[in-house]
Measured scan of single mutants.
Amino acid sequence: QKEELKEKAKEAVKRGNKDKARELLKRAGISEEEAKKIIKKIE
């Protein structure tokens, strides 16, 4: 489940939808700070 949400978040970032990505990562139980780092890494 968590990995699936991370994959979806990756796709969202690639489409330029960072808010959606952050939302998905939060749903995966990832903190706001972690989510920001992950999104930065994907960009």
Rank of each mutant, 00 (worst) to 15 (best):
K20N: 06
E23S: 05
L24A: 03
A28D: 01
K2G: 09
E34S: 04
A28M: 07
R27Q: 15
K26V: 13
K18M: 13
E4G: 09
G29M: 01
K36W: 14
A35H: 02
K2Y: 15
E33I: 07
A28W: 02
D19K: 12
K37I: 13
I39L: 08
E11Q: 09
A21E: 02
K18C: 14
A35Q: 05
S31A: 06
E32V: 07
A28E: 03
K6I: 15
E34T: 05
R15D: 10
I39N: 00
E33L: 06
E3C: 09
K2R: 11
I39Q: 01
E34I: 05
E7D: 08
R22E: 12
I30C: 11
I39A: 00
E4P: 04
S31M: 04
E11T: 06
K2A: 13
K14T: 06
I39C: 00
K18V: 14
K36C: 09
A35F: 04
K41L: 14
K10I: 14
R15K: 11
I42L: 12
A12F: 11
K8Q: 14
A21R: 02
K8C: 13
A35N: 00
K26S: 07
R15S: 13
L24E: 03
A12W: 12
L5V: 05
A9R: 00
K26A: 11
R22G: 04
L25K: 01
E43T: 05
R27F: 09
L25M: 02
K6C: 13
Q1V: 12
E23P: 00
K26I: 14
L25W: 00
K36H: 13
R22M: 15
R15A: 15
N17Q: 13
I30R: 00
A9H: 02
E43Q: 08
R22W: 15
L5W: 10
G29P: 00
K26H: 09
K18L: 15
G29F: 00
R22D: 04
A28R: 00
L5M: 07
K18A: 08
A35V: 10
S31G: 09
E34C: 13
E4V: 11
I38F: 14
G29N: 03
K40C: 11
N17H: 11
E7F: 07
K26F: 08
L24T: 01
A12Y: 13
A9C: 05
I38H: 02
K8S: 07
K18P: 11
K6Y: 15
V13H: 04
E4S: 11
K18W: 13
R27V: 08
I39H: 00
G16A: 03
E34H: 05
G16L: 03
K26Y: 09
Q1N: 13
K36T: 14
A21W: 05
K8V: 04
R22N: 08
K8R: 12
R27A: 14
K41D: 14
K41P: 03
A9M: 03
L25R: 00
G29C: 05
K26T: 10
A9T: 03
K40L: 13
K2E: 11
L5C: 04
E4C: 13
R22V: 14
E11W: 06
E32F: 07
V13F: 08
K41F: 12
K2V: 14
K40M: 14
E34G: 04
E32G: 06
E43R: 04
A9Q: 01
G29E: 02
K20C: 12
Q1M: 14
K36R: 11
K6T: 12
K36Q: 14
A21M: 03
I42N: 03
E33P: 05
K14Y: 09
R15H: 11
K40D: 15
L5A: 10
L25F: 07
E34Q: 06
A12E: 13
K2T: 12
K37H: 10
I42T: 06
E33W: 06
K8G: 04
K8Y: 09
K41G: 11
E34V: 06
I30T: 02
K6G: 04
R27C: 08
K2D: 10
E43D: 05
A9F: 06
A9I: 14
V13M: 11
R22C: 14
A35D: 00
R27L: 15
L5I: 08
G16V: 02
E7K: 10
R22K: 12
I39R: 00
V13W: 12
A21Y: 03
E33S: 09
R15V: 08
A35R: 02
K14W: 10
E11D: 09
E43F: 07
E32Y: 07
K2M: 15
E32Q: 06
K37D: 14
K36A: 15
E11K: 06
K6W: 15
K14E: 08
E23D: 09
